[in-house]
């Protein structure tokens, strides 16, 4: 009988304990029942995976100042201090007109090139998988202004190239993201008739976070054959290491491309990793908040 008494007593006690937790449980139940749509953020840390643009863009009223720097080729010998004597630079400004629309301008020392672009978010990946990927469209124009001896016929039109990219990205987990970017390039002038004015390429890139504020990035730009035939070129391959602190993102990069613009690195990368045609460099971006929300 005593046994039964304790069994029943314990029933009452546990019943009471359950009641205490009930309040929080009731809250959590009603919370999981309510569906609020939230968008995935931070697919990549910076607006560039390495050379290629990522799905990230500055938010409304944010100005991003980007310095992209590449030293010379690693295999250029000790006389050139293994490339560190030379430098190629791109300075860029990116501004978020709205949270979805971003405009950018830049100037590269490589062929003294000016560039401008517009980037627009079409789809945004959501937390609850209603939308599995983020998709942005990117249109850019480049114009190189370097004087080339004996080629006085190169007018502004001939020096201009366009690109249209569809950025498709997915953040698989807080540590791992991938992006695939079908790219169309149009050159107003190509070296020979055998070369195509309209070129199709696919870029792929990904990042793997190694700590909360660091990630390893890789990027590959694949150009199907028979489009650029008159010049020696190789696919552009890059590796990077992102370090983020507050409003800065610092990216250390290794790439076989010297240029940082798609119309140049996709079709005009003459070197390969295997032969040591590697350019070491870095990207630094600094975010400025120009407009206060509310």
């Amino acid at each position: 009988m005593k046994k039964a008494f304790f069994v029943i007593l314990s029933f009452i006690v546990t019943g009471r304990l359950a009641a205490q937790d009930n309040l929080l449980n009731a809250l959590n139940d009603s919370m999981s029942a309510s569906k609020t749509k939230t968008y995935v953020k931070g697919t990549f840390k910076a607006t560039h995976i390495i050379n290629a643009q990522s799905i990230e863009q500055p938010a409304n009223g944010n100005l991003n100042f980007v310095i992209q720097h590449r030293f010379g080729q690693l295999n250029s010998g000790s006389y050139n201090f293994f490339g560190l004597d030379n430098a190629t630079l791109r300075l860029g400004l990116e501004y978020g007109i709205t949270d979805d629309l971003d405009v950018g301008v830049g100037r590269s020392s490589y062929l003294k090139t000016f560039d401008g672009y517009l980037k627009y978010k079409i789809l945004k990946q959501t937390e609850r998988e209603e939308m599995p990927v983020s998709v942005s469209i990117l249109g850019s124009v480049t114009n190189y202004t370097q004087d080339i001896v004996g080629k006085d016929y190169l007018n502004a039109k001939y020096r201009t190239a366009y690109s249209a990219e569809l950025l498709i990205a997915r953040k698989f987990s807080s540590a791992f993201s991938l992006q695939v970017t079908p790219t169309f390039l149009h050159y107003n002038l190509v070296p020979t008739v055998a070369d195509k004015n309209d070129v199709f390429a696919v870029s792929g890139g990904g990042r793997l976070k190694i700590t909360k504020r660091m990630s390893i990035n890789a990027e590959y730009n694949w150009l199907p054959s028979n489009q650029v035939v008159s010049t020696v070129r190789h696919d552009s391959w890059s590796l990077g290491w992102d370090i983020e602190t507050g409003g800065h993102v610092f990216q250390l990069v290794f790439s076989n491309s010297q240029s940082m613009l798609p119309s140049q690195y996709i079709t005009q990368t003459p070197g390969t990793w295997g032969k040591g045609d590697i350019f070491f460099g870095f990207n630094i971006s600094r975010n400025f908040n120009l407009k206060k929300k509310r």
Binding site: L23, L24, A26, L27, N28, M31, T36, T38, A59, N60, N62, D99, E127, G247, N287, N289, K292, K293, R294
Partner: peptide, 15 residues
């Protein structure tokens, strides 16, 4: 009892 999703915190600065 209170419960909230930490993603629901809205900051003045997006970043």
């Amino acid at each position: 009892a209170f419960s909230l999703l930490v993603k629901g915190f809205i900051f003045a600065k997006e970043l």
